Simulated assay, not measured.
Amino acid sequence: MSVFSRKNMKKISTRPEFYVFLIIIMLSMIIQAKSGLFFSNNNIVDLLRSMTVPLIYAICAYLGFISTGPDVSFPLIAALSGYLATEFVFQTGYSGPIVVVFLVAIFFGLMMGAINGFIIAKYNFPSLIVTLGTTSIFSGILLGVFEAGRIKLPSSMIEFGQQSLITVTNAKTGLGSSLPVTFLIAVGLYLITYLILNYTMAGRGVFAVGGDATSAERAGFNVKRTRFGVFTINGGLAAIAGVCYSVESSYFLPTEFAGEEMIVIAAVILGGTRLMGGVGTLTGCVLGTLLLTIVTNSLILIGVPIYWQKFIIGAIIIIGTAISVIQVYNVKGFNRIKRKKMGVA
């Protein structure tokens, strides 16, 4: 192995994503060895289907963390935006292209995200507290003001949800699985976010603000505008996820949205995104989301009960958070030693 290859391997092995990838491989092999079903075409398609909405949520959580702090409001923004878009179809009798339904949802999502962004940027309040508060407000509007319940979607939305990219059938069991077109939406959002964060000045500003707001401001980045923009965009992304979730299930179920934020945040932290901001990768988000999707969807193949799955997810959340905190302290300790060697206080 060349020196260049060894250096690359050493660099890769220090990244949190590498260890998440190894855990995914080991877990997959264990499930396959015990059940023989993990790598079946049905299970792979079901895993990809189950990742669609969590992946969009993970992008929301990721953007919040690397720029400011936790955003826990995206599931309720998704629910309320999805409900309002569905009501738009019912009230207007609209039956045209589904893109209009998404645009309606995005409009409401952007407004709700802008509320978060305005409060956080204007008054410098902690994002966790603000988004917890708006979560309760959005939930109250959805369940109290609108009295939203289980609603069967209009036929135009159901037809879109039933369109599939891939349909597979297990030869032994005869069970069929399909990958909906909404998966392409999740992949598209991932690619757009990746390109913006890595190849635009706005993307660099997001990382700079999350790393050190004071230094970012001195470098010419508008901290308040960046934070406002991130949380506003998060609202739009959450709205897309809300419509995707509804069309996949053919029903609007308001109670199904709440509680997703903690699992998604766990996935993002597992993927290497630091709680303190400024550090993290979208690749890590994908791997963290895949790992928790495997835990919640595929452990049943080897007979692991639901309550043990919750136990495992809880343990993963604690371990992932601990690793993130340890990494921060290690970096601080390394920088402190380096300053001492250089004779800097």
Rank of each mutant, 00 (worst) to 15 (best):
I319W: 08
Y251W: 11
G203E: 00
K122G: 03
M157A: 12
E147L: 03
V72K: 05
A85D: 07
Q309K: 11
V206L: 04
G69S: 10
P75H: 06
I192M: 08
I137Y: 03
K340C: 11
Y190I: 05
I323G: 13
I306D: 13
L84K: 14
T281Y: 00
Y57A: 05
K338P: 08
G210W: 01
M262Y: 15
Y245H: 10
A85L: 09
G278C: 01
F228N: 05
F252H: 09
T232A: 01
G271I: 04
A171E: 14
A216H: 09
P254E: 12
P75S: 04
T296P: 00
I120N: 02
K172D: 15
Q163T: 09
T281L: 04
I317W: 03
S324Y: 03
I25S: 04
L287H: 06
A238Q: 04
M26V: 15
G69V: 06
P154R: 15
T52S: 11
I337D: 14
G113H: 02
R339T: 12
S249K: 11
I44W: 08
M9P: 00
A171Q: 11
I137L: 15
V3L: 15
N170V: 04
G205D: 01
R150L: 08
F65S: 00
K34I: 09
T134E: 11
Q32H: 11
L63C: 03
V130E: 00
S127M: 07
T281S: 08
L189A: 03
I316S: 01
R227E: 06
L287W: 00
G271E: 06
L292K: 03
E87A: 14
S95F: 03
E217A: 13
T173R: 09
L179N: 13
G69Y: 00
T283S: 11
E87L: 14
N8D: 10
S127Y: 01
I263N: 13
Q32R: 10
L22W: 02
R218H: 13
A241T: 09
L22Y: 00
S298G: 09
I319P: 03
V344P: 10
G343E: 07
L270M: 06
M51C: 13
F207C: 04
S13V: 06
E217R: 14
F21M: 12
V230W: 01
I119L: 06
Q162P: 06
I23L: 14
V187P: 05
G271Q: 05
I12P: 09
V53W: 05
S298R: 14
P70S: 12
I306M: 10
K341T: 14
A208H: 05
S95N: 07
T68Q: 12
L290C: 11
N330W: 13
P154C: 14
A58Y: 00
N8R: 07
K10G: 10
E17I: 01
C244L: 10
G280W: 01
V243A: 13
A241E: 09
A79P: 06
Y329D: 06
